[in-house]
Write a protein that binds this DNA or RNA. Structure first.
Lengths: 383, 383
DNA sequence: ACTAGATTGTCAACCGGTTGCCAAAAATTG
DNA sequence: CAATTTTTGGCAACCGGTTGACAATCTAGT
């Protein structure tokens, strides 16, 4: 119903605008008589519920109810009001609504780095789900800094109904503190007591390791990500476990930073390790590593197999295209948004739920899978 | 251990909206002693200016002035109020402020496709500039549809102080209509009467074409983008002009869509054209084209040179890495944001500016440059 | 027809700042 | 020291919705 109001007048809006179109044509005649604010409320002082009330001949509060409490007013009054609203091209003033209710129909998403392709699909997933449910997404970037992240989060808390933290850098306690204030959902990390969306790395990793084992590899290196990364730890655990299961040897190497450049830098360690297959914390590292190895004359995958993580945009641009353990990032984003919206609606319906009594925070696990491309394969005998 | 892992359920059920279920459960008996709203204002009922006023012993309006009108109150009252505010950990309620003033310290950015890497840097540039000036960025996606774009724009207009449209799909009149309502800045397109930020393609293109000419190429193909794309038209014009100047032959080819896939599809036309060098509307096309040509055994750049546009993320992942005409996308984003903020502040300072009398809408042109990588170079004699 | 009960609409008090107007207080001047 | 100007703080009316309490109206039951 409400939506109908917002979207139906799409075409009604045309008359609304073309009145103004004629305006500029006017200067021909006389000098602009009255000074006109450029972006003002002069032409169309956005209709209010009071205007509607006047047109429909009812009380403003009745208008308010007709527009937000379905069934609270009689069918005919409802129609009367809706017609008036349509006629006046009414749209609610979100601020006026937010003031007394605290609800803003908005939620925040904080990512570590807007230009990191890992987040693209997360952002899109969240945005799509939000929009579909008539929520607005506000985006902020933490520039990979825990402090900036916390600041951004605090700032947002004031204006949003809930918050999604994608791969947060701040520590668990801060996250829980935020979650105490408003619903928070975390992506790519588990935080006790806070709803999370995490890719379950095990399936993807075991597929990858099994594939490597089947191709004759015996020693696998894992290039780790940032020390404080929860995900990096999980991936290393997964690799260890899978290697154990497949009776492969696993060694861990450190990277300076989880970027293409970091991948280049770790190349010498990789070669020194003697491993014939490498899994890297993310695709960026894998790509840099592959570039550097190839530049040194190493043939991929004949001499060394490379497997990344995430399946980011561009992972298939390389030669050979990158084999990678895909996380359904878009799903993470939309899943987080959906989770958040559920929390919001729950709060709405019976907000006086005892704090401790609630069921444990939901954890949404999404599956990972191996995407087999050209950068991994059978090891060729040296020669 | 490993075994257990394999059985981890794909999705842990997301607790669903079961308000109706829990409610009846309550008759159970003694209600939980202290019913506590989960996300409530109980702990810290966000301090208001009234609280501050009480603490500081002044009138709320004085607090308001102290906090927003610098110099309007005496130094000692100021200090008194600031201390009280700090003590109470006060932060303004943005909605309460927006309601009477209409100012929201927020602006919107609408992009055609959040997952299109072209926009990544634009988004970041805008976000960074916005945040630096204490504005918040709200993001929306038009999913490449003019109608969705317009809807999103209209929806946003209600809650933002201004709007940035990146490569908008809607037509000029609609953009101007929006611009009449609130400040609007357009990226990647020129719209009469609306401030724009556009990369000036000429420098980059002439560098590219000169480089091709110097490498012995004589016939250049341009793979165009969407017919309605303003930018595509500019680029084709630029290519034509530069080719004329360098006395090269230029032919235009059409693409089905400006994506990697579109690039693959256009490969046969490219080969049929007889051109030895190709410029494509964007990098995605270039990458797809290169993949397809290479798959068919064509050696790049020995047999054909490929030059893209934009220098998107991943353009250097290819083998050979892609030569491309770089648009400073980040600059576009931050430039647009800066332009918008200027407009906002101008409106603020003397809002009663006559509509027609203002100087013509600003056009910010940013420079493009050739990024020479491996996909273009000297033509080798067939062999 | 008369009343209990359910619907539906109205009144008025918020939500938390902002701002025009005015008077008290302080500073400047004659 | 009085008269005048400038500061500074207070009062109150908004901004545009929401919502609890209550009254009016309508429906149904006997």
């Amino acid at each position: 119903m409400r939506d109908g109001l917002a979207t139906v007048p799409l075409f009604v809006a045309v008359p609304h605008y073309d009145g103004a179109v004629t305006e500029p044509k006017e200067p021909e005649g006389a000098a602009p008589a009255g000074p006109v604010k450029k972006h003002a409320r002069d032409g169309k002082p956005n209709a209010t519920i009071y205007d509607i009330a006047k047109v429909a001949g009812v009380n403003p509060s009745t208008v308010s109810r007709a527009l937000s409490k379905p069934g609270r007013v009689s069918a005919k009054t409802q129609k009367l009001i809706e017609d008036a609203a349509a006629e006046l091209n009414y749209q609610v003033n979100p601020f006026a609504r937010a003031l007394p209710t605290g609800r803003t129909s908005t939620f925040g998403l904080i990512v570590a780095d807007i230009t990191n392709p890992t987040f693209f699909d997360i952002i899109r997933g969240a945005e799509t789900t939000a929009t579909a449910r008539d929520y607005t997404l506000v985006l902020a970037e933490s520039a990979e800094s825990a402090a900036t992240e916390l600041t951004a989060a605090r700032r947002m808390m004031a204006t949003v109904d809930g918050l999604i933290l994608a791969s947060p850098r701040m520590d668990d306690d801060n996250i829980r503190a935020l979650a105490r204030d408003k619903p928070v959902v975390v992506i790519n990390r588990e935080v006790d007591g806070v709803p999370c969306v995490v890719p379950d790395v095990n399936k993807g990793i075991s597929e990858a390791v099994r594939s490597l084992a089947a191709n004759g590899h015996q020693k696998v290196a894992f290039v780790a990500g940032p020390p404080q990364s929860w995900m990096s730890a999980r991936r290393w655990e997964g690799v260890q476990a899978a290697c154990e299961w497949s009776r492969l040897e696993a060694v861990r190497l450190e990277s300076s930073k989880p970027t293409v450049d970091g991948g280049r830098q770790v190349a010498r360690d990789v070669r020194a390790s003697g491993a014939t297959a490498v899994l890297t914390y993310n695709d960026l590292l894998a790509i840099g590593l592959m570039q550097e190895l190839q530049a040194a004359g190493v043939v991929v995958p004949d001499q060394i197999s490379i497997v990344g993580f995430d399946d980011i945009f561009g992972a298939d641009f390389t030669t050979p295209p990158l084999t990678t353990v895909r996380s359904p990032l878009g799903e993470c984003g939309s899943g987080a948004a959906a989770l958040l919206l559920d929390l919001l609606h729950r709060d709405l319906s019976h907000g006086d739920l005892p704090l401790g009594a609630g069921e444990p925070a939901a954890i949404l696990r999404v599956e990972t899978e191996l995407v087999l491309r050209g950068s991994s394969g059978r090891l060729l005998p040296a020669g």
